[in-house]
Design a protein around this nucleic acid. Sequence first.
DNA 1: TTCTCGAATTGAAACGATTCATAAATGTTT
DNA 2: AAACATTTATGAATCGTTTCAATTCGAGAA
Lengths: 343, 343
Amino acid sequence: MSVSVKEVAREAGVSVGTVSNVLNRPQVVSPTTVARVTDAIDKLGFVRNDAARQLRAGHSRSFGLVILDARNPFFMDITQSAQHRALSNGYTILTGTSDGSESTEQKLLDLFDEQRVAGVLISPLHADLSRLWRIREAGTPVVLVDRGSGDRSFSSVSVDDVEGGRIAARHLVDLGRKRIAFVGGPETIEQVRHRLEGARSIVSATAEVSLEHVTTTSLSVLEGRRVGELILSRRQEDRPDAIFAANDLLALGVLQALVMSGNVQVPEDLALVGYDNIDFAESAVVPITTISQPAAEIGRTAVDVLLREAQAGENAVREQFVFAPKLVVRASTVGNASTPKRS
Amino acid sequence: MSVSVKEVAREAGVSVGTVSNVLNRPQVVSPTTVARVTDAIDKLGFVRNDAARQLRAGHSRSFGLVILDARNPFFMDITQSAQHRALSNGYTILTGTSDGSESTEQKLLDLFDEQRVAGVLISPLHADLSRLWRIREAGTPVVLVDRGSGDRSFSSVSVDDVEGGRIAARHLVDLGRKRIAFVGGPETIEQVRHRLEGARSIVSATAEVSLEHVTTTSLSVLEGRRVGELILSRRQEDRPDAIFAANDLLALGVLQALVMSGNVQVPEDLALVGYDNIDFAESAVVPITTISQPAAEIGRTAVDVLLREAQAGENAVREQFVFAPKLVVRASTVGNASTPKRS
DNA sequence: TTCTCGAATTGAAACGATTCATAAATGTTT
DNA sequence: AAACATTTATGAATCGTTTCAATTCGAGAA
């Protein structure tokens, strides 16, 4: 059906080896021959068959990427920048979302195995990295994304989530809030655990401030709304006066619930801090104070590290990148900070 | 490096043909042999090499998907549902974003060619579909996504954008707005053209209502903000009293600019309608009235159509699906509709 | 015992690009 | 003119899976 090197070779009157050389190292072929071959390629509409290349090469020119949630713009930003970086280095990225399901994560890794990807980028769901060990031992480099490698046994590109938690909690404490609620879960997600841990460390070091943990089954707007309604259903004196949500989607959901009810004023009655600084946090009903992470830089760096590991092969050096989170103050915690003026 | 069928065959004491049969049609192999082979597979950790399969098969078990903008949740919703549907039929989806660049779109199609994808799903940037004709003539089915096929020469799954434009404009006219501005561009994007066309048809049929077109270079929040500021810079009497934005991202940006200035009340001074009904339209400063499109259904249906075409081969029947857009009224046009009560 | 039929298994050929040892052609130096 | 170096070109072998015509095996029929 489709045209192969053999036919190009015949058309150009050269051997298949020469066609391959024109394709891969034109310097070793005489200019006139290159011209003849490229003409033949154009004439026949030849397109390289990547499967055959891969088969010979033993591995593909793609990386596999597994993220936690495709509906979170933060991860899409990472994906986008990773894709760009990979593409400009001649690599493709196969993307998949684990969406909270362990089995989906496994299926994606199986898929990547069958594709013989040149490397794996992953935000693992759980603490158990044994599968990733095996993948690496089979010769495929692995880089953890948005997740540190505790024992430095993997390369990783992440943001200091514990510090992020501290920053958020400190901000709320500084504002004089006394009853803080951390909204987020499940705790199997390391990012959630770390943010909570950071917040705890600040609160426990501060007298008269309490921290409550309201867990969720996922990090979505819908779950946020559920929690918001849950909090609204409490008697007024039992409600927290500040909420630190594990990400902006949750924060957005909580905010929706609160604002729709009309009973709770943000930030007067309840201050709200999110996490990720997605674009939409800024344009929310009440612009949301949040902890910003450099998504694009994470994606780029992760690909760079993976490229280096793939290059180095066996004796690759593991690299750990940890970016610093930053507080972005908006109206959801400080009423007059860049608040829309409404008459 | 990695284990091949040959080694599995040796370990199990059978021929490679039998191993392949166990893998692909276990019914023709005796149960005891199946057991021996699967044991060997487990023992050696054999993983199929997809490149070799593809090479033999002549085409891959992946579809290529090109969308317009990965940062637009609407397209991510399409992508997600398409991925699910494909996966449950044993297909993988390679995703790419053209991001407004013709050359990126071409590069992605080149890539899909090299991968010998089993089909292409695409929201084409331009009206020129000649490249897609060629792809299909080479035997790869093509389905247009979120874009109709004027002459029905391609299968397509889309939403009636002209009708969407009509609905939006009619809503604004019904509310008594007189000076409507359509915000969106570039006009090379068919969706934008159609929505504008729909709005025009309503306005020109209505006395005393004018329609102005404010064009943009992309459909992003940032561009929306730019347009918002542009409008704010006008004298009050030159400002429109309603804006119909080509999508929700633009609408969100416009809204940000207006609200931040504090000079314009939404919807009192200016009513705002978006398009797509992304989740974030609901949680905006002022919840945005929008035209909703069934994103998940589009993705699913597109894959189904592609599967059918791939199955049918040469004599496939072209199918056109056109979904109906729906108006979702929120506070950005009707002040008291589900508006948050603020004291 | 011989024959037949169906089920189970075999193994060589094929898919298409790349590699690499070898050969041919060209140019340079004695 | 011979010897040598350099640049180009060749084509068989290879990667790992699937396919399919051919073969083996065993059970039941003649």
